[in-house]
Structures are given as C-alpha cells and as structure tokens.
Design a protein around this nucleic acid. Structure first.
Lengths: 188, 188
DNA sequence: CTAAAGTTTCAGAAAATATTGAAAGCTTAG
DNA sequence: CTAAGCTTTCAATATTTTCTGAAACTTTAG
C-alpha cells in the first residue's frame, strides 16, 4: 500500500473528522483508505498502511460493518478476509444518513414516546406543563423528520439529484397544491 | 430548580446522546435543561440543578452559544447572565442542521477542493486515478448537498412541513418537469 | 486429527477529553 | 476610584476512550 500525498491527506482528514462524526480516528482512516482503494484490502495491509495494530483494524472494520459501509470478500484459495467500501458516493451518503438517523434520532424518539405516554400524571406545576409541551413539540418534529427521511430513502438517486438541484424551487409544488385544493393541476 | 422525573429522564438522555452528537455530556444536559425551562436560568441555578461545577457551566454555555442554540438575557437591576434556549422546535432543528453542516461537511469540502485543484500532477498509477475519481465524486455530492441544504434553509417552516408531509410524493414534481421538457413521461 | 493461517477478544497502557475549583478578569453602583 | 458581585480562564485531576499485543479462538488443508 503505497499512498500518494493526496491520498495521505484525505485519509488523515477523515481521521480528524472521525471524532466530529461520532466514530473514532482510526475508524475514519480505515474507511477513507478503503474508499480510495479499488481493490479490497486485508487486515494486515490496512494495519501497515495506517501504522496501527492488527487488533485495532479488527475493531475498526467491525464498526464499519455495523454501519454497513464495508463488506468482506473472499478470494478462491485464499483464507484472508478482504475488505472494501461501498463504491458509489450516493449509496455511501444514503447509508450514512440512514445509520445516523437510527443512532441519533431513534433513541430520542423512543424516549420521548415513553415519557409522554402517561401524560396524565405529574403536571403539577406551570413549569411541568411547559416542559411537557416542549417535549411534545420535539417529538412531533422528530416523527415528521423520521418519516420524511424514510420517504427520501425510497427515491432513486437520479430523482433525488434532480430534486436537490431544484433547490427551493420545490416550494412551487406547494403553490399548486394550495391553489388546486383537491383537484390535480394539469398545466405545468 | 426542582425537576420532575420526566424532566430528569429527558435531561439525562440528552447527556447520554451528547457524545454521539459530538458535544459532551454536560453540554447536552445544560441544553436539555434550558429547553425545558420557560424562564431563563443563571449559571448557579444550572450548576446546582445538574450538580456540576460553576466553571463547567461557563464552558458549556459558551459552547452552546457557539452553536447559536442559547442566548443571554439581562434583567434590569440584575447583573447576572440569564440563559435560555431557542423555544421553537423548528428553529432549533434548523440551527442544529446548519451548524452541523458547517462543522461536518464544510471542512471536508475545502479539503477536497484543495486536493483536487492541481489534478494535473501525480496520477502516476491506475490506483491514483481511481482514488482521485472517488474524491471527485464525493466532492460533487457534497457540493450538491451543501447547496441543497442552503436552499432548504430559505424555505419557511410551514412550507417545509407541508413538503415533508408529502414524502416521496414530491417525485411527482419531477414528472411534471420531465414532461415539460418533452421527455418520456414517467407516470406510474 | 493437527498444524497452519488466519481472526477476534480483552486486559492493561496510553492518549484524549472533560471537570473542578481557585485565581484572575470584568463591570458597575455608589 | 474601588469593592461587590459576577464571569471566565486554566492548571491540575479525574474520567473516558482508544490502542496495543498477546492469548484464545476458528477454519480448513492435508
């Protein structure tokens, strides 16, 4: 694994970002390395390229697999595990987006549902009522966002790309909807 | 600051989530506390409610201010700083989204632009070419996402809510667009 | 079955991060 | 101007997270 200066920079950067992204430095570096390599790599190559221990690679790869960002391959007549990253940027983004939703939003959603279930009790003070109001508001927003992101996942990358390119132009669709009040608009 | 069991739970949870969200436990707790309190709180109240040191509160609040999630108030004839959180869930979400984009995407964007600027050099191997291809692909995606998120920020919360409620129905707008262009209609 | 070639686990060491609390710094009423 | 009443800073300490490397484990060729 000989790395050019650009690859080095990219890998180093992903390491740095790792912490901000909630994964750790090593995991970020391993991922970057795999993204840049067309050919799958096996554990020792990764360890060598990044100067980290064999055990650390094992941990990191496991973590990346739990994110569904890295897959294992086998070559006939070879017992090693070869690892590679998803190779399409859209698929990468989609996967990261989905996993983050699961890890960052879902737990809060469950908690809020739980807390607000027995909303009959304990609203003794004005304060309590306010607090529960805020929690309810947050719960509703998170539910909406979750549903939306599930919906977005269904859209084909190509359509998504066009949609994004439209930018805030999409609001025009809302105008149609409002104007039509139930009937389907015909003219563009 | 007497906290009910629900408030406790919520605050504790935000502390836990803090690490996953790239802020720390204390900062998460302070934020949760402020979100739930209608009235702004001053540093000592926060320290007491959460059993943390005065200095820690200062750090945490500063961090939250840098996220634009917390504001300071002053009461006439009172020298204390009173802190409060944004009180609208949509505004909260918008702010968090925007700040995260700045912290998590922008740096990578800059780096990739930098790296790929002198794309004339050093594509010696097949590997190098592949690596740079991947970087370019990622750069393009990030640019698109960034632009899109800037566009979304411009949309009014009300419109955004309607838009999200439509879910994958928005793709219909693409059909309009395509048809208008004289392309093959995509109707189901 | 055994040895070779690999992977995973995990306890301890190292590194990074968060927290405290005392001291230094501001700000303003008087 | 200065002292009271706050806030901020920061060095030391505590806590948490990450990393290593050796041992345990797994798989398969022969």
């Amino acid at each position: 694994m000989k790395l050019g200066p650009k690859e080095q920079k990219f890998i180093y950067h992903f390491g740095e970002m790792g912490s901000k992204w909630g994964i750790n430095r090593t995991v970020g570096q391993i991922y970057a390395l795999l993204v840049l390599n067309k050919e799958p790599l096996y554990a020792d190559q990764i360890a060598e390229a990044l100067s980290i221990s064999r055990g650390n690679v094992s941990m990191g790869v496991k973590e990346l697999q739990s994110w569904r960002l890295v897959k294992v391959h086998h070559k006939p007549g070879d017992r090693k595990d070869y690892y590679s990253a998803l190779s399409d940027a859209w698929e990468m983004a989609r996967t990261i987006f989905e996993e983050r939703r699961k890890r960052e939003i879902e737990p809060t959603l469950s908690l809020l549902r739980d807390i607000l279930l027995d909303s009959g009790s304990a609203k003794t003070s004005e304060q309590d009522a306010y607090a529960q109001g805020r929690m309810t508001e947050i719960l509703e927003l998170l539910e909406l966002v979750t549903q939306w992101s599930v919906d977005l996942q269904r859209i084909q990358p190509d359509s998504l790309r066009s949609l994004m390119k439209m930018g805030s132009g999409v609001t025009k669709i809302l105008e149609f909807k409002d104007r039509a009040k139930g009937r389907i608009p015909e003219s563009k």
